[in-house]
C-alpha cells in the first residue's frame, strides 16, 4: 500500500482503552515501519512528541525468541532508555530486522520537565493479547501497556 501524494497519510497508530492500562494498535506497510511506528506510539503516550528536538541519537540492538516478543523487547528497551537517561525518541529507524533480532536508531532528546509535556508513565509493554498480523498486505500489531 502506498500513500497517494497529497492524500491523507495512512494512520500509524491508535490508542485503545483498557480499564486499568492502555493498548496500542500500530500499523505499518512493512514490519520495519510497524516497529518504527510502535516507537512513535510509545513516545506519544509519554509526552507530546512534536515538542522533542532531534538532538541525540541512540543506537539500539534487541533480541527476542520471536517477532511478537521482539516488539515487546523493543518497546521495553525504549522505556529503559527513558528511565536511565531520560532519553525520548521522536524518530525511529529500523536498520535491520530479523524475527529474533533488530538493530535500530532512535533520534530525540533528553526529557526536560520545563519544556516537555508530562504524559502518562508506562511501567512496561506486556505480552498480554500481544499480536502481530498481516492484514491485506498491511502489518498490524496490538500491545497492552502496563501503566
Amino acid at each position: 500500500m502506498t500513500a497517494v501524494p497529497g492524500g491523507p497519510r495512512p494512520i500509524k497508530y491508535r490508542q485503545l482503552s483498557h480499564t486499568a492500562d492502555l493498548g496500542l494498535r500500530i500499523w505499518g506497510v512493512t514490519p520495519e515501519e510497524l516497529f518504527e511506528n510502535a516507537g512513535e506510539a510509545l513516545t506519544a503516550v509519554l509526552t507530546d512528541r512534536r515538542r522533542l528536538r532531534l538532538k541525540e541519537t541512540e543506537e539500539i540492538a534487541v533480541e527476542a525468541p520471536d517477532l511478537e516478543a521482539l516488539l515487546v523487547a523493543w518497546l521495553n528497551r525504549l522505556l529503559y532508555l527513558y528511565d536511565v537517561d531520560a532519553f525520548l525518541g521522536r524518530e525511529f529507524q529500523i536498520l535491520e530486522l530479523q524475527p529474533q533480532f533488530l538493530k535500530a536508531r532512535a533520534r530525540g532528546e533528553t526529557y526536560d520537565p520545563e519544556r516537555h509535556l508530562a504524559g502518562t508513565a508506562i511501567k512496561a509493554a506486556t505480552y498480554h493479547h500481544l499480536e502481530i498480523k498481516n492484514r491485506n498486505g498491511r502489518w498490524e500489531a496490538t500491545v497492552i501497556l502496563d501503566l
Binding site: 527476542a64 525468541p65 516478543a69 523487547a73 521495553n76 512496561a124 506486556t126 505480552y127 498480554h128 493479547h129 500481544l130
Partner: peptide
C-alpha cells in the same frame, strides 16, 4: 526484573511443558 523474568519464563513454560492460555 519482571520483564527480564517473563522472558525467562516464556522459555521455561515451554521447557517444562506448561500449557498457557495467555503468554503473560
Amino acid at each position: 526484573v519482571c520483564d527480564d523474568y517473563i522472558k525467562v519464563m516464556l522459555k521455561a513454560a515451554a521447557k517444562y511443558g506448561i500449557e498457557l492460555p495467555d503468554r503473560q
